[in-house]
Design a protein around this nucleic acid. Structure first.
Length: 489
RNA sequence: CGGGGCAUAGCGCAGUCCGGUUAGCGUGCCUGCUUUGGGAGCAGGAGGCCCCAGGUUCGAAUCCUGGUGCCCCGACCA
């Protein structure tokens, strides 16, 4: 029996949940809003982590680890920051339990109240900048380029697996610099690292841009973002990089002596991507048959299926093939479960998103062929066994490229330029609205009004936007260029 | 946090309105036989604090009260 995956055009969010559940990526847990990331899902995260970590190291960063808990007073040191996060913080107030006197179980021991409550980190700027105060005294200590892999907690009211959970895994980079220029450069560099990762590894095209005042990180001077378009025409903020200026240095009194022995506040950046990327990966490529993974991030890239079932001859051939593929760096498995028939395995492996399936049967051995099926286009063809390793290696690269091209095409088909508010409303109300480029007068007031009227937000002001004189589609005030609107996750 | 819905076998559900043998169905799981190039068939079997806690009743999956969790819509959301 086919497992039922809701069709995308029938109910997109049901479809998304079906994929997550049936591909065994994650499930809800006993804790509200917190998910269990299952082995299939975590394997994807591990591949993302490994690649990102390499990219961070290549750009000069090192890893460190800071505490899960933040003293409450730290959070309030930076005014905008606390305002941005206060409403979604988990707070630790006690440090001990005891048995209830009526035998009903354990209760919080009222004697064990903390003098100062601890916040479970929603992000680590405050605890890290408190620490940096001790680490930085001279320009010789700069730049300080640190990343941490961690979990954070934001008490979201409405959660969705991977896309928004109360606890999530992420990395957060926190850098300190001697000049404003360097901090800005760092923020932009990391935005580009994220964009490269998204496009080259996730095969997910992204817009690079800067957030409006209204949308930027609490405590930042500017927030740079990468924005991807999902198959339902909604935008996903996939990663952000913040130029923090001297805001946190001032809040935590982090100063250094420059080469002229003058005391200055340190300049900062911070940047992060999270397990939300897995949600973006799913919503960019997957189809009604299940998960579709880009080869570079697929935990398993090739599966060999013995047809109709494993036997000594097929096993030997499969093992030989696997050795050859592994030698070329291909992640390959052999689906040698004797209890399942081929058709079942085909469906299962498609559901899991394995990019290439190799079907190997008696007929193939006789003919010197093998059946090569690609997940992305759901096509299959018989290939000579001779040279199959080269073919597979090339096909993995082709699939990676095809997924990216397909996503770019989708984005192009769902990108619209409008000049009037009527047009804007028409596009935003479509089934698949997409990105809408329109003129905006630069005020938060207009931005909020548009959001109120249409639910669309300004995703970003593109980094590379051409200057273009125009008028705001709603207020009629002058504008120097277009910004990107969309409905967003 | 507001409105609505749901919670019964690993998963998906019926039964609940109108209380009454041993709580069913599909799928999955185990055993055996037959099958096997796109989700196999037959036979046998195992598997249930019917979400939790109280209450009503001779008797509760079913009625009442209070919790908890999940889903959908909305508000909120670096």
């Amino acid at each position: 029996m086919a497992k039922a995956i809701t069709a995308r055009n029938e109910n997109y969010s049901e479809w998304y949940l079906d994929i997550v559940k049936q591909a065994n990526l994650a499930s809800n847990s006993a804790v509200r809003g917190c998910m269990v990331i299952k082995p299939n899902g975590f394997a994807i995260w591990e591949r993302m982590q490994r690649q990102l970590d390499d990219m961070f190291k290549e750009t000069g960063h090192v890893n460190a680890y800071f505490p899960l808990f933040i003293p409450k007073s730290f959070l309030s040191r930076e005014a905008d920051h606390v305002e941005g996060f206060a409403k979604e913080c988990a707070v630790v107030t006690h440090y001990r339990l005891k048995n209830a006197e009526d035998g009903s179980g354990v209760i919080v021991d009222p004697e064990a109240k903390l003098e100062e409550e601890l916040i479970v980190r929603p992000t680590s700027e405050t605890i890290i900048w408190h620490t940096y105060r001790d680490w930085i005294t001279s320009y010789r200590d700069l730049p300080l380029l640190i990343n941490q892999w961690a979990n954070v907690v934001r008490w979201e009211l409405r959660t969705r697996l991977f896309l928004r959970t109360a606890e999530f895994l992420w990395q957060e980079g926190h850098t300190a610099h001697a000049t404003a220029e360097e901090a800005l450069e760092e923020a932009l560099k990391m935005q580009e690292v994220y964009a490269t990762f998204a496009e080259e590894y996730m095969a997910m095209p992204v817009l690079r841009g800067v957030k409006t005042v209204n949308e930027r990180f609490a405590g930042a001077i500017d927030t740079y973002t990468i924005e991807a378009l999902m198959q339902d025409g909604k935008a996903l903020q996939a990663g952000t990089s913040h130029n923090l200026g001297q805001n946190f240095a001032k809040a935590f009194d982090v100063k250094f002596s420059n080469a002229d022995n003058q005391e200055e506040y340190v300049w900062a950046s911070s940047w992060g991507v999270s397990t939300r990327l897995i949600g973006g990966l799913i919503m960019t490529h997957s189809d009604d048959e299940g998960l579709v993974l880009p080869p570079k991030l697929a935990p398993v890239q090739v599966v060999i299926v013995p047809i109709p079932k494993p036997n000594e001859t097929l096993d030997a051939k499969a093992r030989e093939l696997m050795e050859q593929l592994k030698a070329r760096g291909v992640r390959v498995t052999y689906d040698d479960d004797a209890k399942q028939r081929p058709g079942f395995k085909f469906a299962e492996n498609e559901l899991k998103g394995i990019p290439i399936r190799l079907g190997l049967g008696k007929r193939d051995l006789e003919n010197g062929t093998i059946e090569v099926a690609r997940r992305d286009e759901k096509t299959k063809e018989s290939q000579p066994l001779e040279g199959i390793v080269d073919h597979v290696v090339q096909l993995l690269a082709d699939i990676q490229q095809n997924l990216f091209d397909r996503a770019v095409r989708f984005r192009e088909e769902h990108t619209t330029y409008v000049d009037t508010f009527e047009e804007f409303q028409e596009v935003i109300e479509r089934n698949i609205p997409g990105f809408v480029y329109a003129h905006w007068d630069g005020t938060t007031e207009t931005e909020l009004k548009i959001k109120e009227l249409t639910k669309a937000t300004i995703r970003c002001i593109p980094n590379d936007r051409p200057e273009e004189q125009g008028v705001d589609m709603l207020s009629g005030k002058p504008s120097q260029g277009r910004v990107v609107f969309a409905k967003a996750y």
